[in-house]
Design a protein around this nucleic acid. Structure first.
Lengths: 338, 338
DNA sequence: GTTGACTGTCGAAGCGCTTCGACGATGGAG
DNA sequence: CTCCATCGTCGAAGCGCTTCGACAGTCAAC
């Protein structure tokens, strides 16, 4: 591996000149620059990342702390990860992948040993143990999610509260008054994952504002969970005419159950899903849905990191406005149901 | 951030002694070691990764080159990634996540700039452009997949050829003679992704050996693709009594179509799936399946990397034996069908 | 008693880069 | 013509760690 000194020798300049050609931090004559660049190309020189990190205190690596469990929402996690990696590369940064399982120790390890310049943290709980740890780090961090105590920490996410309101407003506009929420699994609520809480809160608020009869119910994974959830909703909210489904995994079994019991979507029951676009369109009935804009959120998280690293100002809380796309799963309620 | 010199001063020893306590490369008296460790703990010292990499030419980071497209097989990719990250951490290594899109340039960037000690490469095509690049690197690499020219490169994967044979042998043992293969999407074949080729080859070989009437057909994504695939199979292989499905995404629509057309699984048609265990058991009929052991493969890939880094011998090609688990989707063919 | 082999520790060199201060050369302002 | 600012380049220091060689001390073997 050639070093900067090899390049300097080949170009007939000093090592510092090569460094300045690379960084552009000092003016270099066009001629010298060309000679240096030729030498770099010819020797196939790549600066040693460790040496660079040591001398400049910059690694050009950001950590992505993601829950790598293989259960719900895998495609969504993947969309976030993809967006983060792509955006990071666009800023000449690489991504170190950490699991959530390592908890606080993982963050501290990579931060204290100066492996990364910044961190992006996913899957936050309301009172996440990682938050105090993040505050202590010298590296900036951006969270995807909105935990309770986020003062001074940058947060980026879909505005799930607004999403819930949007869903209910849409359904109310079509005349629905009895609306059930099929929520994430109880495990998600138990962990107080922030998006679940925020969605539920928005749902309840909008329900009151719009004067609706609503009921929310978590939904265990699998067909059995969907069956139980639907049965409970039917019992406790008889005559329910619309469902808001904030549970990607339950979507398919739910539709199957409705069909099996002879309830047509949207003729007999309307459905609004909160899920990635492609999931909504892959269903037998194309679902009216509110997209989870993983790509936008991931990209925004990286942009925020870069601003932080550059010392520019950032908005500490950025909640993206939800968008509802109408497809084939909602219908104005027929007079007979009123 | 405290440095090794701060620790040395606090413990009343030299920096090199601290280093030897950390690495264990030279004997240190128990007493000194205790003093040093106390100082490390007290100061919260973490060695600077860049400095360490510079001095030792080791980064304790491995690159994972994965296709981060959000299409087929996301959960499987995720399972690989999870296994790799977990296994790497168990060996005190971290994982840098690269996308396949960066192609050869990405590999060279991280390798030449000494960001990683080794690479794990996924989603290989038969004549993958990245292979010559990998050969040129000074870092060792392990491939998940089995490209055409893999001499001297470590490969790890499920033995898809054997998997196809296993599926056919199982079905033949139940008396099936007309068997269709629902393959991956044409795009996967077009890219000559190695698992698809190997499965198909094994399928054709076993088909000849067992004297079966078989037909293979790629399957476009979505319900429409499944419909077309099934229709073609029915036309070109009339009286087909069993399906081997090597396409996770097609599984569900396929079962729906069979049900819709009144063909019961397994009474009228048997199905063997090649997919992760949880996908097979999540179907309405629990599917007899051959598992894709992503966890084992990912772990083995990391183990192989570690052996390579230690200069130990490795088997350059490790194909894991497939295992077929019988569930509820296969049945001995009834005499009327013969 | 020597000798030799360890044991335990230290000092210094060096890994490859960035960055600061210095300095000759150039050129416009006065 | 001077003077000063700017341009373009260089040399040296230093980032924090590992590792090699050296060396004092200990102990068993002869």
């Amino acid at each position: 591996m050639p070093t900067i000194n090899d390049v300097a020798r080949a170009a007939g300049v000093s090592a510092s000149t090569v460094s300045y050609v690379l960084s552009g931090r000092r003016p270099i004559s066009a001629e010298t620059r060309a000679r240096v660049q030729a030498a770099i190309a010819e020797l196939g020189f790549h600066p040693h990342a460790g040496a660079r990190a040591l001398a400049s205190s910059k690694t050009n690596v950001i950590a992505l702390v993601a829950p790598l469990r293989v259960d719900v929402n895998v495609p969504v996690i993947m969309q976030f990860a993809t967006a983060v990696v792509t955006a990071a590369r666009a800023h000449n940064h690489d991504v170190l992948l950490l699991t959530k399982d390592e908890g606080t120790a993982g963050l501290e390890r990579v931060a204290h040993s100066t492996m990364v310049d910044a961190l992006i943290v996913m899957d936050l709980e309301r009172d996440d143990v990682r938050i105090p740890a993040l505050r202590r780090l010298k590296q900036p961090s951006v969270m995807i999610g909105l935990p309770a105590d986020h003062a001074g920490l940058a947060c980026v996410d879909l505005d799930f509260g607004a999403a819930a309101k949007l869903a209910l407003t849409h359904l109310a506009g079509l005349g629905h008054e009895r609306i059930g929420l099929v929520g994430p699994s109880p495990a998600v609520y138990r962990r107080q994952t922030t998006y679940a809480d925020r969605f539920l809160t928005g749902f309840l608020e909008a329900s009151a504002e719009l004067n609706l009869r609503t009921l929310s119910h978590p939904c265990e994974p699998g067909a059995a969970g969907a069956r139980e959830c639907l049965a409970d909703l039917d019992t406790d909210l008889p005559g329910v005419t619309a469902l808001v489904v904030h549970n990607e995994e339950a979507l398919r079994p739910l539709l199957d159950l409705l069909q099996a019991s002879g309830r047509r979507v949207p003729e007999d029951i309307s459905v609004v899903a909160v899920c990635p676009r492609d999931v909504a369109t892959a269903m037998p009935v194309k679902l009216t849905s509110i997209d989870i804009p993983a790509h936008d959120v991931g990209t925004l998280a990286v942009e925020t990191v870069m601003r932080l690293l550059d010392g520019r100002r950032v908005e500490y809380t950025r909640l993206l406005a939800p968008e509802l796309v109408e497809r084939d799963s909602c219908r104005e309620i027929s007079p007979t149901h009123r």
